[in-house]
Amino acid sequence: MAAVTRRGGPARPRPRRARLATTTLAVLVAAVVVVPLVTRLDQQLVDLGAAGLPPSPAHPFGTDEVGRDVLLRSVYGLRVSLLVGLVAALVSAVVGGLVGLVAGIAGGVADRLLMRVVDGFNALPHLLFGVFVVALFSPSAGAVVASVAVTHWTTAARIVRSEVLTLRGRPFVDAAILGGSSRARIVRRHLLPNLAPQLLLATVLMIPHAIWHETALSFLGLGLPAHLASLGNMINDGQRSLLAGDWWSSLFPGLLILLPTLAISALAQHVRDRANPRWRSELAL
């Protein structure tokens, strides 16, 4: 009997890849939560006697130019980066989601006005605008969150608005209107559940993007205070050691940016696939 192969159509969910991504993220999150609780080492401890040591069993990621343990500082840096990325992505999604929802539902003048505001924000180079926003405050995690949120809420607004406009024209929404549903009920029962997967995907994908922004701003010296461990600060510090051949002080923080980015992207893809009811039921079989 000929084997039946599935051709065409959208890609099926890939649970193995998702499991790997979940495991990676779980390990990273566990590390940033547990390590600061159990270790007695001070991530800011300067030990000039151990400066510039390459990776070894005592210091798996080596030490930086003032003898601080790169592994310990990377874990602290990742904690800051993940937290800043998560909060910035959530703020962007909430603000953008509300704007997109109002624009899509209200339509008319309100829609045009809100979308011109979105266009105005999008017309600005977002990294430069982010630098401007963060420069208004003293270097802090809050300033970085504000910078990323102010420059990125427009993505969520556009996604939500376009989804609302598509859904509004669907016959099942007409059927709900004919069935006596109020506007609020239609939003609650039909629009929000159906646009949630797209908004969730945008939010999750925003996390690595926000991490990159945090590291970029810290790298430029505008993010977190220089003495605090953040992945951007570490790469910035490490670039001075690169010329002396100390590759480890930049490489490992760099890898720790890449790892959650790839894991979150894979997980986001899986979440989107699972959100499709047809695929979900096929997976359950």
């Binding site: 099942f172 007409d174 039909h190 559940p193 009811p277």
Partner: peptide, 13 residues
């Protein structure tokens, strides 16, 4: 109103 295409006329969720 009964719509022509039932697949489009019901919320997939």
């Amino acid at each position: 109103l009964v719509f022509q295409q039932p697949r489009l006329a019901v919320d997939p969720r």
